[in-house]
């Protein structure tokens, strides 16, 4: 437990430290370079802002209208079989499809059940350890006009499922 926390906490500062030292060692103008990158970050974030507004409203409406509770209620008995919390189901379903809508759902889960609660940590782990699988496959196969994809979607989605179950398991183990 302590080791896990230590590794988690040291990872980011250590990487930043190493990169800055490396940049200095190779005699780069590190701060000017940093500014270039940071400026680009501004454009990236602003470009996803409209998507986030649209999706936050849609996900917020799903929750406040009460329909999400009904969906969760119906899913609970099925999901209990594999010990998967039904509150995380909307995230599990949207994660492979769309990056920005999974950001919206994950934020919604963390906000409603507590960001440091076990559901909040599970949602964070799922977000950090899985990708927008369907989107990625679509982009990579369509760029070279491949028709026969040899069940790659099934393989990738199976792995996503394993990742989600593993997220839940490790967060249970940690708490």
């Amino acid at each position: 437990m302590k080791v896990m926390n230590f590794v988690s906490n040291i990872a980011m500062p250590l990487i930043i430290l190493l990169i800055v030292i490396y940049g200095l060692k190779e005699k780069n103008k590190v701060f000017d370079t940093f500014l270039e990158g940071a400026k680009e970050g501004l454009e990236i974030t602003l470009s996803i802002f409209p998507t986030l507004i649209g999706l936050f409203v849609a996900i917020g409406a799903l929750r406040s209208s009460g329909i999400l509770d009904i969906i969760i209620h119906f899913l609970t008995p099925i999901l209990n079989v594999i010990h998967f919390p039904s509150e995380l189901m909307p995230l599990a379903m949207l994660r492979p499809i769309s990056g920005s809508s999974s950001i919206a759902v994950a934020t919604d889960i963390m906000k409603n059940y507590g960001v440091d609660s076990s559901l909040g940590i599970m949602a964070s782990t799922i977000m950090g350890s899985t990708e927008t699988t369907i989107y990625t496959i679509a982009v990579y196969t369509s760029c070279i006009k491949i028709k026969k994809t040899r069940w790659i979607l099934a393989a990738a989605l199976t792995a996503d499922l394993v990742g989600m179950l593993a997220s839940v398991a490790i967060c249970r183990f940690m708490s």
């Binding site: 990487i15 490396y22 780069n28 990158g37 940071a38 970050g41």
Partner: peptide, 13 residues
């Protein structure tokens, strides 16, 4: 922005 800036440094090395 912070991360992108740091990674920009990395990509120049």
């Amino acid at each position: 922005c912070l991360w992108n800036g740091i990674m920009q440094i990395a990509s120049k090395t």
